[in-house]
Design a protein around this nucleic acid. Structure first.
Lengths: 279, 279
DNA sequence: TTGAAAGCGCTAACAA
DNA sequence: TTGTTAGCGCTTTCAA
């Protein structure tokens, strides 16, 4: 031990990994790093990982299937013990094929019973927003989505169509992720002859962009248009935007617990509508 | 090759790493994942890393020296080929001790000539903001910092003190990072008998919180108080906040180029004041 | 308790 | 060109 000390010996972790056959590293796949939505999830994963003595290998997928696959390949190569997919583009079947190499956690409603998942019920959350609007006598409601064919978008669409069967298709705005998307959509909204009197918006950043642009264009919120965002990011509070709070940090922590656990589970995490003054 | 195909052979990357003595993995140390400032830097690093076929191992330090050291230890253990420190709490001397084990890049003004760095000149950037305010006849200027003793804070303080030698110490607000910090500081500001007529604010999120809270309290921007933020995040555009743009994505890409390069360099990245309507 | 050695699965140098 | 084998630096089993 003394000799080790004097020679400033340190273990070569690669030899350890090779010998042990595992690494105590978890891979995390996120579409974007710079968006707080994913940043908060990642923070949740990271804080749980730290406690467990795990390290994180991250890949920014940009929703490119090739990137997602490359990340999943780390499982095959034994570079990571498991992977958490915060959001994906990759078909579920090919994800599932990787599960023989290690644990995979999906941050979405259960897509396959054999793959653990942690999620908020997008259908119910969207429904809650819609119901709230209805209660406030807003019936001409439009909404925004990020990827129109994404899983959570589909759930939101379903909730919407059940509530408004006769809905106009041009009251749906896609590719809504950032503040800029919000301002773009506000301009589109303002141009419409027949426009919604309420908008349920992907997340609080888009909602912020939307609200601010509406004001610049001379409209009032909620008089001319009601707004409900998602996530309950501090910016929503600052702008008095009613928002559906999603416990993203908890979701990240939970995903980590699942990835190091032996058994498969499907865990739902709660949402909560926080009412402010945009409806 | 056919046999390999049929047996679905895949390399064990740990054996490769052990044999090669390197991993094509870069460690990244960030204080927080959920803040867009660091998210954008990380995005820049990630996009460059992907092109180079490198993977990223990240650690969220929360500015805890112990976490930073743990991340640096990955260098010793040969888990990573190099590390990028986006921001640190750890003393430079101990960082330097690790440089014998691999390349270390600092995203800050050169702290040690032997350690590569990429940075925006915080002194000049702050000076530019101050000069702009002066030009607009704002002389009672306050400012916010994140960590009062951090490197960039020190540079900002210096620029401030050179401009306003007789400055009141209570026109400096610390721990400013998030939207909430901005609203908190706005309340403190509003309570002061003798308050600044302009604020140079850590970043656009804090600036957004500050501006919005000022309005809630019945003040007008820029009539009652001018505001300059940093980063030029889209939220600044949406709120018409004048901001000093920092090319964070580029900074991240550059840091990656440096970490895989053989030689040491100190690269400055430009800033740019984008004038809007908060001054 | 301490010591020796097999095995983890590759790369690279060396022979054939 | 193809085939062997000596590392790389650990963990773990088995002997002593």
């Amino acid at each position: 031990m003394q000799a080790a000390e004097q020679l400033r010996y340190v273990k070569n972790i690669n030899a350890v990994h090779l010998s042990l056959g595992k690494t105590k590293i978890i891979g995390v796949i996120l579409p974007f790093f710079s968006h707080p939505y994913f940043g908060v999830i990642l923070g949740g994963i990271a804080s749980a990982a730290e406690k467990g003595g795990y390290k994180l290998m991250i890949t920014q997928s940009n929703y490119q299937v090739s990137q997602e696959i490359e990340a999943l390949d780390m499982l095959k190569r034994k570079q990571v013990d498991g992977v958490i997919i915060a959001s994906r583009e990759c078909p579920i079947d090919i994800v599932k094929d990787y599960s023989e190499y290690g644990k995979i956690i999906l941050c979405e409603a259960p897509a396959d019973s054999s793959l653990s998942s942690v999620f908020v019920d997008q259908y119910k959350a969207f429904q809650a927003a819609l119901a709230f609007l209805k209660q406030k006598s807003r019936t001409r409601v439009g909404y925004t989505l990020l990827r129109p064919e994404g899983k959570s978008s589909l759930a939101r669409k379903k909730a919407y169509q059940e509530q408004f069967s006769e809905a106009k298709s041009d009251w749906l705005f896609n590719n809504a992720l950032t503040v800029e998307d919000g301002t773009r959509i506000a301009r589109e909204w303002a141009e419409m002859r027949d426009r919604p009197d309420a908008m349920v918006i992907t997340n609080d950043f888009v909602a912020a962009g939307f609200l601010l642009e509406c004001r610049k264009l001379g409209f009032s919120v909620p008089e001319d248009v009601s707004i409900i965002g998602f996530d309950n990011h501090p910016i929503a509070s600052a702008l008095d935007i009613t928002s559906v709070e999603l416990p993203l940090h908890l979701l990240g922590e939970t995903a980590f617990e699942q990835v190091i656990s032996l058994d498969v589970s499907h865990l739902e995490v709660p949402f909560r509508l926080v009412d402010r003054n945009s409806v």
